[in-house]
């Protein structure tokens, strides 16, 4: 774990998923790490710019990575699977192909933009706190045990695959979320669809196909008896949470499973309250039993 990170919340945590941003900042403060803001960064392109205009994606990423580099941090911290993969894909190209890096820097220079020297690593919050010193630090602040809470981990795709771009853990048998769930004192529920897809990238363009994909994790997590799901990705969160009712209608089921951002789960175990974690911003509401199991101060103190 680093002492300071160039913090890249991405679009969703800056706009519709602000509860993820506030939870992340609060847990970072608990862990005693500094998050450096980068006010002029753009969207990572969410895979869409990468697909439609690959060269634009490469340059936008270089601009973001360059800003991170100039902040003095060695690691750009992401809190979204899609940001993680997109920035790592570009970073891999820029770090391993000197001719491409030189071409991109020439273009950045020609448009008055600072360059990138290839000196930044892109890492997700999940990776930083689920092993090594970051894990130890989290263990020491996770003072409020969430004992009795059954949590279904949902990894999503772009933090596991393709492993050659991500490479943090075995993409078929990941354990990082389970390790953190247990560090919170909660119980991790196992189910096969935890490494599958939430359907979010095509939920607008191909809603029926996406809903068919989304049903699998919701159904399996529900059947396995989970109280809540937790995900390291705000796109998965939006899909699992906001599209849950539509997925219910699609499957002829009645899913009612709250979905937590990873930072919210960590925050609850670290003693943060609703004011910071903002569960009220979720579409699928947390009922009193789940709130009780999360032992939020507002409920416990009532």
């Amino acid at each position: 774990m680093q002492e300071r990170y160039a913090y890249y919340p991405g679009c969703l945590a800056s706009l519709s998923q602000k509860e993820l941003d506030s939870s992340t900042r609060a847990i970072a403060a608990k862990l005693d790490v500094e998050l450096i803001d980068m006010p002029s960064v753009t969207c990572c392109g969410a895979g869409d710019i990468h697909e439609a205009k690959p060269d634009y994606h490469l340059h936008l990423s270089a601009r973001i990575l360059g800003q991170a580099e100039r902040s003095g941090a060695e690691v750009l911290l992401t809190i979204c699977n899609v940001c993680t993969l997109n920035l790592r894909q570009a970073n891999s190209k820029l770090q391993n192909d000197p001719a491409e890096l030189a071409r991109v820097n020439d273009n950045l220079k020609a448009t008055g933009i600072g360059g990138y020297n290839g000196g930044v690593d892109v890492r997700h919050l999940l990776w930083e706190v689920s092993q090594g010193e970051g894990y130890d630090r989290f263990k020491s602040v996770a003072t409020r045990s969430l004992e009795g809470l059954k949590v279904a981990p949902f990894y999503g795709c772009q933090i596991l695959r393709p492993a050659k771009m991500l490479g943090f853990e075995d993409p078929d048998r990941p354990q990082s979320l389970e390790r953190l769930i247990e560090a919170c004192g909660a119980e991790a529920i196992d189910y096969p669809a935890k490494i599958k897809c939430c359907g979010f990238p095509i939920v607008l363009a191909r809603e029926q196909v996406a809903l068919g994909e989304l049903v699998q994790p919701l159904q399996q997590a529900t059947e396995a008896g989970a109280d809540v799901m937790v995900t390291p990705c705000p796109l998965c969160h939006l899909s699992l949470d906001a599209w849950q009712k539509k997925a219910s209608d699609h499957a002829g089921a009645d899913f009612k499973i709250p979905v937590l951002h990873l930072a919210q789960l960590l925050g609850a175990a670290a003693g943060l309250d609703e004011q910071t974690l903002k569960f009220r911003r979720h579409i699928t509401r947390l009922d009193d039993s789940v709130k009780g199991k999360l032992r939020l101060p507002s409920v416990v103190g009532r």
């Binding site: 679009c11 519709s16 002029s40 753009t42 869409d48 607008l204």
Partner: peptide, 23 residues
């Protein structure tokens, strides 16, 4: 013209029309 391509186009244009996705 496909919805998927139009979706991608919004992202492309958002980047230089404000920086962030226009949800």
């Amino acid at each position: 013209r496909d919805e998927g391509a139009r979706h991608a186009k919004v992202f492309v244009n958002s980047a230089h029309k404000g920086g962030f996705l226009r949800e």
